[in-house]
Amino acid sequence: MTDLSHQVKHYIMRGSLALLLLGAPQMALAHSNVGGALSFVTGFLHPFTGIDHLLAMLAVGIWGAQLGGAALWMLPVSFPLIMALGAVAGILGLPMLATEPGIAASVIMLGVAIASNLRLPVLGATAFVGIFAIFHGYAHGAELPKEADVLPYCAGFVLATGLIHLMGIAVGMLSRRLGSPLLLRAGGALIAGVGVLLEARLMLAPL
């Protein structure tokens, strides 16, 4: 317990330092209304604006924590990378089939994976998550505003995505620590339920 709280103190301190350094460029922009600050905020807020993206990314973190071991870091490392490849396809306007249904399906499948406590080997879990990351990345890439200040926008966007993963990991770790895996699985079922609603809405939309 003492060791854990000792470690947690260290991580909080390091996290605060990292945030301090991350905030530094914004201080420089605070003096003038130069482009960049707005783009960073816009990019940062983007992943929070769609419930489908938000739930899927949260679920990736939760599932990683549920699987434990190498999956804990492999999933949050591979998801942004594969998502960026999908975003490149979206930015360049490459064709992609059923992006929105694919995103809704990702919410369902990841929710089901958590609810059923699906145990896959690390590479299998990475591939499972990676397939869906392409859909998410493609949608984000296609939506990227042309007028945005490119680098701050992408920095804000990826940072927010990563933070949502970390939130998911924190939820999963907390659940493990509290010894309440059923609560986590119920959360997974809830995520899958929302995914079904999203998919249904997409299927009924043309009607």
């Binding site: 949050p76 490392v77 591979s78 942004p80 990378l81 998502m83 960026a84 490849l85 975003a87 490149v88 930015i91 360049l92 890439g141 990227l144 490119v150 680098l151 992408c154 920095a155 966007f157 990826v158 940072l159 995505t161 990563g162």
Partner: peptide, 12 residues
């Protein structure tokens, strides 16, 4: 991995 993702998108 975050920096790789950011840079890939910026390059695209």
């Amino acid at each position: 991995s975050w920096i790789v993702a950011i840079d890939l998108m910026v390059l695209a």
